[in-house]
């Protein structure tokens, strides 16, 4: 499995995600500069990491979404290649229109840095094969703009096509406004593209992979990707 992590000016989670990939797949990810025009040959997973690309100027992810490397990322996605956007990476994917919708300011207007509970909505995707539908994961979040919104028709389509992969829930997996920390529509924490190969999510699974730090609920996501890519 050949992973490439794109580094934008202001990214700050590229090291965390590269370390999680190395730990779980045994193979180091390549770090790719945003101004490059090509992905390393043989890349089968592209990760857009978290951070504050371009200082969140204009809109979160707006400028990074127009970086030269994004043409190659788009071509990779069009070919069915896996693209994972975490936190700022999710915002970039939305701005690049590789995923629908936008991430607006958290409803309570505060930056939120804590652990949340995420319900896995389905396990038949490249990102959740090693989980079961209904599993509740403990995963950290750290964002100010994670309030997922789209027009009614888009939300209806996403729900109808089963493209909502993670939702914010209670520890028991129940939907409850109290546990939907950023006010996202339908408590959406992660969405898939039409072909299920592009995933964007606000929480940081890469930060819960090492038992030294605490829970390891994020491992399954990287194990799923590894399983899928190695079987291909």
């Amino acid at each position: 499995m050949n992973a490439a992590v794109v580094l934008f000016p202001g990214s700050n989670r590229e090291g965390d995600v590269a370390s999680a990939i190395k730990r779980i797949t045994g193979k180091a990810a390549k770090i790719v500069w945003h101004a490059d025009e090509d992905l390393p040959s043989g890349t089968d997973l592209v990760v857009l990491p978290g951070g504050f690309s371009y200082g969140d100027y204009l809109r979160c992810g707006a400028i990074a979404a127009r970086a030269p490397i994004m043409n190659a990322v788009r071509e990779h996605a069009d070919r069915g290649g896996l693209v994972l956007g975490i936190c700022n990476g999710f915002q970039i994917l939305c701005e690049a229109q590789l995923l629908p919708g936008v991430l607006q300011r958290n409803a309570q207007l505060r930056f939120m840095c804590k652990e949340v509970f995420l319900r896995v909505e389905r396990s038949d995707t490249p990102y959740t094969r090693r989980y079961n539908a209904g599993d509740v994961l403990r995963i950290p979040v750290a964002h100010g703009e994670g309030n997922y919104t789209a027009d009614e028709e888009t939300i209806k389509r996403l729900e109808g096509d089963g493209r909502v992969l993670f939702r914010y829930t209670s520890p028991e997996g129940k939907l409850d406004a109290k546990w939907n920390h950023n006010g996202s529509t339908n408590a959406i924490a992660g969405v898939l593209s039409e072909k299920f190969n592009v995933l964007g999510l606000m929480p940081h699974p890469e930060n819960h992979v090492d038992p030294l730090i605490g829970p390891t609920d994020g491992r399954g996501l990287f194990e799923s990707i590894k399983t899928v890519l190695e079987a291909a």
Partner: peptide, 9 residues
């Protein structure tokens, strides 16, 4: 269209 506005919202 290309940058200044996000025409989704």
């Amino acid at each position: 269209d290309k940058l200044l506005a996000n025409t989704v919202v």
